[in-house]
Design a protein around this nucleic acid. Structure first.
Length: 584
RNA sequence: GGUCCUUUAGCUCAGCUGGAUAGAGCACUUCCCUCCUAAGGAAGGGGUCGUGCGUUCGAAUCGCGCAAGGAUCACCA
């Protein structure tokens, strides 16, 4: 909203003019614009240190003469310059900024904040990608939150987004749970036991690992089962279909509960053969090599990496074989301009190799593949290990958060004010979860400490939701008495204190922030925005009555501010998966 | 050993392209509901920004070295 570029150009050109007047030789460095550290220091700042040498003057003197020069110009952008030590600062004209922003927010409504920087681009985002042998855990939750949010952010930047999920339903790990079930299951089912399908299958995966400790042949049997599976053995495929369905049903329920959705599903079982063919094709063309024992590999020494097996000696495919097939299949399906893989940082090496393999196979779009790598989620005790039972289960976590939120509602005596307290509790839980998962820089590892992390106060999702609910409450009360304010005009000059200026400036910067979030694949930018905005609002709200301001014109102006803040809040919340609540 | 990442307050983290006294939350000590929802607000203590050099008028931010921690380098996914 503030035209930085315009001011920057002006300062640059005036400095050139002043420099010419000195009659000195040489050229000037380019001007830098920044935001002063405190609101009372204005809206823009131009440090003049770098010009001191050329002018042969101190930056302080230079700031004085530049300020005088600029303020004497007739046709400068709206605003006032002033010297602040070695800086020349500018206070822009807030009235027009406020009026323009109010108008823009009114016009754009729920799409305020969106931009067109990725207009016309087709972006595919792959995330979640569960295995069909166990339920989702905390690591998947971070993945889901990130994938969902980054998809929304890319969409808000103008891209056409295709959210895809790849189901890892093939491999030796799947055979493990099948084998254990076949051996020890006694025909039980999720229905007969009343256990959610994904948890049911997961328990057999655990059972396999216990069994493998006693019986050394277990691993080998699983490997044999995989060969049978690839050969299309009927009985194996039947069991596989049945158990996959159980898991996918269970996981789909978790998606529904956490507000995650996809536009298209892919299954590794559908693409591993294509991957295999492409690898063999590459072998024929001499892109890949064959070992003495028959395994096919790629020599990566040209990019400084080790060689990597692409096909086992028994001819079965491995993880990367499937990914090769999946990528090719997808580009044929929906020719994307870029494909973003949301996958944990531990797989950086894998993706480096995968992209290189696709490039070697001659796919020009290999350069448009991007690995959005995110840090691991650790527990205070260290890494989560399913075999040691230290995983934080996604369903349990959500239930626990919901129960906590429900209890808060009762404790605060809010039950009677809410239409559906259970639903509200669930939405608060989602707000807490999404905000927690997205507030950090994605590439950083996070330590999840249940006691400290599951909080509803301070810098949290519920705090953001609470501000939204408070503003909604004000606007509801205002709407109920609307006739009192009929015909009262909007006077932007009544919103000129530092906090009001800051809130308008911040809201006005939302489109820039969305752009930054999409370019850096980092939703945490929006978490900071929300928190900063709420913090200023709650301080302002504490000292400034909106409805009982004692002056109708003032009330109307403040309501206008509330609307701008609320719309900005709602739109940013939507991008990071925090449900907006009218009441809580 | 190779590659990549991290190191800022007791704990968990911000800090945009280098700039004006390094910021939050949690925890701790106080205060504020006759006031639009106290899931809130105000005040206070607490930091040689891992370390050493370098670039620069200026470095938490950029470069190099070192140290600590993590990930990865599977015919697991």
């Amino acid at each position: 909203m503030i035209d930085r570029q315009q001011w920057k150009d002006l300062v640059q050109s005036r400095l050139e003019v002043l420099f010419e007047k000195t009659g000195k030789e040489g050229s000037l460095p380019s001007v830098v614009v920044q935001v002063p550290p405190k609101p009372e220091m204005g809206d823009l700042a131009f440090p003049l240190f770098a010009f001191a040498k050329a002018f042969g003057k101190s930056p302080v003197e230079l700031a004085n003469s530049l300020t005088e020069d600029i303020n004497s110009l007739e046709d400068r952008p709206e605003g006032q310059a002033f010297a602040a030590g070695p800086y020349m600062n500018v206070r822009v004209d807030m009235l027009s900024l406020i009026e323009n922003l109010c108008k823009k927010v009114d016009e754009e409504g729920s799409s305020f904040g969106s931009t067109k920087v990725l207009d016309g681009r087709n972006v595919m985002v792959e995330f979640s990608c569960p295995n069909t042998n166990k339920p989702l855990h905390l690591g998947h939750v971070r993945n889901d939150c990130l994938g969902n949010s980054i998809s929304a952010i890319l969409k808000a930047s103008g891209a056409t987004v295709m959210k895809v999920n790849l189901i890892n339903n093939r491999g030796v790990h799947i055979c493990k749970s099948m084998l254990a079930y076949k051996r020890f299951g006694n025909g039980e089912t999720p229905e007969s036991t009343g256990i959610k399908g994904d948890h049911f299958v997961g328990s057999w995966y655990v059972r396999f690992n216990d069994w493998a400790k006693e019986d050394p042949s277990a691993e080998e049997q699983a490997q044999q089962m995989l060969v049978k599976w690839e050969q299309g053995d009927k009985e194996t495929l039947e069991l596989w279909n049945l158990m996959n369905k159980w898991t996918i049903d269970g996981i789909s329920e978790t998606y529904r509960n956490t507000g995650i959705s996809f536009d298209r599903y892919y299954y590794e079982s559908d693409t591993y053969k294509l991957g295999k063919d492409k690898v063999l094709e590459g072998l024929e063309r001499g892109v890949f090599q064959k070992q003495e024992d028959g395994a096919v590999y790629i020599d990566n020494s040209d990019i400084g990496l080790d060689k990597k097996i692409l096909l086992r000696k028994d001819g079965t495919s491995i993880y990367i074989t499937q990914d090769i097939g999946t990528a090719i299949n997808r580009h044929e399906d929906w020719p994307f301009d870029s494909l973003v893989y949301v996958v944990a940082s531990e797989q950086q090496y894998h993706f480096k190799v995968l992209f290189h393999v696709l490039d070697k196979l001659g796919y020009s779009w290999a350069k448009d593949l991007h690995h959005l790598s995110y840090g691991m989620v650790f527990l205070p005790e260290g890494k989560m290990k399913s075999r040691e039972g230290t995983v934080v289960d996604a369903d349990d976590l959500l239930l626990q958060l919901t129960a906590m939120a429900r209890e808060e509602i009762s404790e605060k005596g809010r039950d009677k004010d809410l239409e559906d307290p259970d639903k509200t509790a669930h939405e608060i839980a989602l707000g807490a979860l999404n905000y927690y998962m997205l507030q950090f820089d994605p590439q950083k590892d996070v330590t999840f400490n249940p006691k400290e992390s599951l909080s509803f106060t301070g810098n949290t999702g519920p705090y953001i939701q609470y501000m939204g609910a408070r503003i909604s409450s004000i606007l509801r009360n205002f709407a109920a008495n609307e006739d009192i304010y009929k015909g009262v005009g909007f006077d932007a000059s009544l919103l000129s204190n530092e906090e009001e200026r800051e809130m308008f400036k911040l809201c006005g910067s939302l489109p820039e922030l969305v752009t930054r979030a999409s370019q850096s694949y980092d939703p945490s930018v929006l978490c900071s925005f929300l928190y900063d905005l709420c913090k200023i609002f709650s301080h302002w709200y504490h000292d400034n009555q909106v409805l009982d301001s004692g002056n109708k014109v003032l009330t109307v102006a403040r309501v206008r501010l509330c609307k701008v803040v609320l719309t900005s809040l709602q739109n940013a919340m939507a991008l990071i998966g925090i449900p907006f609540l009218e009441k809580m």
